[in-house]
């Protein structure tokens, strides 16, 4: 376990093609193993580093950084390091709202650059996604939309910290699957994996969708109906099966989408068969690829 997590930690000296990664840890040592190099690299590069804690006490974040030989107090005093909590910031409203979050990231980036930092990197503990807080069910939608709406246009690096002790394995698997880059402990493949489509508005669906994956499908539908821009695409080439509920949810999302169409790329036979039984579900959907 420790070996996996340590070997998976790269030194993020330059942001990759996508700065959005999931990080899974199962104890404090693994947590610190991811935290310290990430913050050190950011400070060395002159980027502002923000840490949004959830279950971890902010003082423990500062302590872990100090133990590793960094000077977090000075960095914080100079505004190069911000350690706060989700509850005090983006979760202080009535409910977690992905639409608002997209704006917040753009604002945070503008602010960091305006204050003279060379960039922005952030860590967010998102273990609150497993708790019963308003809007927590939209975390998956948020993770999926971040890629295209925030990370592709902005030179931002952000790691989503998942504490595997505090999140059910099935939920963790789906959320981690929504990241194109994963670090830390291994996570099982979910029955239905949703991931962003690089360079386009849309998602890739892989696996098998049924009653058991209805929450993931609801998130996919939210991405379809809520993503800004023109057309939205779902790459279904790796989807083996889906039930009528899933198709109906996606079709309804396509209908609600204000602009553009929903394009389904290389849909599997079950989807074509269902459209044969229910042609009305294909009204706002375009099929592409065989």
């Amino acid at each position: 376990m420790a070996m996996t997590s340590m070997s998976a930690v790269p030194a993020p000296l330059s942001p990759g093609p996508c700065g959005h990664a999931s990080v899974v840890y199962s104890d404090d040592r693994e947590w610190a193993g991811h935290l310290v190099p990430f913050v050190r690299a950011g400070l060395e590069r002159g980027e502002q580093v923000q840490y949004f804690a959830d279950t971890t006490d902010p003082d423990r974040v500062m302590g872990a950084l100090a133990s590793a030989g960094l000077d977090p107090a000075r960095a914080a005093a100079e505004g190069r390091l911000v350690v706060t909590t989700a509850a005090r910031t983006y979760l202080s409203g009535p409910a977690f709202d992905p639409d608002m979050m997209m704006g917040l990231w753009h604002q945070a980036m503008d602010t960091a650059l305006a204050e003279g930092h060379r960039g922005l990197r952030a860590i967010g503990e998102v273990t609150w996604g497993a708790r019963d807080i308003p809007g927590a069910d939209r975390l998956l939608e948020y993770e999926l939309r971040l890629h295209h709406e925030v990370f592709e246009p902005l030179p931002l690096t952000a790691w989503c910290f998942y504490d595997s002790r505090r999140m059910p394995a099935d939920r963790l698997a789906v959320l981690v699957g929504a990241h194109l880059t994963h670090l830390g402990g291994p996570v099982a493949d979910p029955p239905l994996r949703l991931a962003p489509l690089p360079g386009r508005t849309g998602l890739r669906l892989a696996g098998s969708a049924g009653y058991d994956t209805r929450h993931a499908v609801r998130a996919a539908a939210a991405v379809v109906s809520g993503s800004p821009g023109g057309d939205v695409e779902l790459d279904l080439s790796a989807l083996r099966h889906l039930d009528v509920s899933s198709l109906a949810a996606l079709a309804e999302a396509a209908r609600r989408r204000g602009q553009g169409r929903l394009r389904l790329l290389r849909p599997p036979e079950p989807l074509r068969r269902l459209l044969g039984l229910f042609p009305e579900l294909g009204a706002c959907v375009e099929i592409a690829g065989t």
Binding site: G210, Y211, D212, H241, D243, V244, P270, R273
Partner: peptide
């Protein structure tokens, strides 16, 4: 082709059970 039908039917049936 029939496997698609088989799987769709069983998917609906088992989902209904739950």
């Amino acid at each position: 082709a029939r496997r698609t039908d088989w799987l769709l039917a069983i998917g609906e049936a088992t989902g209904n059970s739950v």
